[in-house]
Design a protein around this nucleic acid. Structure first.
Length: 358
DNA sequence: GTATGCTTTCGGC
DNA sequence: TTACGGCCGAAAGCATAC
């Protein structure tokens, strides 16, 4: 079963101030470059009727809502996280096993407690929806199915406040008419390539030879697409631990190729990443820098060490080196700069490795 | 060929 | 017509070792 909190950030804002809930509500990520530069994180369904969807520039959203009484709100991530954490406790306790995907959705394995009865599964889903409504005043949409693939697609069909149950014997007819991009992992690029092959729906995909798919998309994606079209998915629901990487990225005041300007911002990001490392008591083996160029193309460079370290000086020096290398290999200006550490190692071990080195 | 590890890009939320 | 965040994990692509 997949539980997806409806238009999450905007719904939380509606709960915080119910006077806005009959208007378009647009929750924004402001980049700080100009007064209104940034993108829409989430909008409520009223705003969506005006074409205001996640990811569009704020300026465009304002244009689409020109003359309409609407509310633009700065994203308050810490608050949404607190609400999310409480809901995830409810979801986890309602499952045999649990996998959180981002801040607003989670897969719940309820095989045991439902005894594989879809009647019983639907009751469990209704009960969980009720608990979230009672305890947090929020709605969610739930998809129930024989695996993650089907549950996810089912959750998308009826929303907001939806509940869709797809039994194993209904899977093929359920998927058949849906567009291919409902499958997780099929985004704009893959669906465009499928379109060129004359494939628009999952029903058209299932009719395609798996060999042909593997030639076009490679063995991995090819077999994945083939299996997905038949509603087959064996990916297990597994608890996720802490994040395996820590990153910060920020938009620069202006696009630039000036390494000093970039490093000035990157140094702040290093400090923040380092702070989060210390909080978790970790060292790192891999440092990466990410640059979003003026044309929004994304470039990255990374460096791997033999042993782990948690040294801020090392982080800053390597970040400087990597941005230098990145600029050498591009002639475009940088719009956004990011710093990431990964292959994280408990600080105890970092200490041991450092002392054993001397 | 297979296994493994590293770098970079892709795509979900 | 343009406009444009900040995270995260997974996969692709490549090199190396055996």
């Amino acid at each position: 079963m997949l539980v997806d909190l409806d238009y999450f950030y905007a719904q939380v804002e509606e709960r915080r101030d119910p006077s806005i809930k009959d208007k378009p509500v647009v929750v924004c990520v402001y980049s700080g470059r100009t007064e209104e530069s940034g993108v829409v994180a989430t909008a409520n369904y009223i705003a969506r009727k005006y074409g205001v969807n996640s990811g569009i520039p704020i300026v465009l959203a304002k244009k689409r809502l020109d003359g309409v009484d609407s509310v633009f709100i700065r994203m308050d991530h810490d608050y949404y996280k607190q609400v999310s954490d409480r809901i995830m406790v409810i979801l986890k306790s309602g499952s045999d096993s649990f996998e959180q995907m981002g801040i607003d959705e989670a897969y719940l394995d309820i095989s045991q407690r439902s005894g594989l009865s879809y009647q019983r599964a639907a009751e469990i889903a209704r009960s969980i929806k009720g608990e979230i409504k009672d305890q947090e005043g929020l709605t969610c949409s739930v998809g129930v199915g024989p695996n993650k693939l089907v549950a996810k697609i089912a959750s998308d069909v009826e929303k907001p406040d939806g509940l869709m149950v797809v039994k194993p014997e209904e899977v093929l007819q359920f998927l058949y008419p849906l567009p291919v991009d409902r499958v997780v992992g099929v985004g704009r690029k893959t669906s465009e390539r499928l379109e060129l092959m004359g494939i628009r729906t999952i029903g058209e995909l299932v009719a395609l030879d798996v060999q042909r798919l593997m030639e076009e998309f490679g063995d991995s994606l090819g077999t994945y697409l083939h299996n997905s079209s038949k509603g087959m998915d064996e990916d297990p629901i597994r608890e996720r631990g802490d994040a395996e990487s820590i990153s910060r990225i920020a938009t620069l005041k202006q696009d630039t190729r000036d390494i000093d300007l970039i490093l000035q911002r990157a140094d702040q990001l290093c400090l923040e990443v380092h702070e989060r490392l210390l909080q978790r008591g970790l060292g790192f083996k891999v440092v990466a820098v990410i640059a979003v160029m003026e044309d929004l193309a994304i470039r990255s460079r990374s460096k791997t060490f033999e042993g782990a370290t948690d040294d801020l000086g090392v982080l800053r020096r390597v970040v400087a080196e990597l941005f230098g290398s990145l600029l050498e290999n591009s002639n475009r200006k940088v719009r956004r700069a990011g710093v990431k550490v990964s292959n994280l190692v408990a600080a105890k071990k970092v200490q041991r490795e450092l002392t054993s080195f001397f």
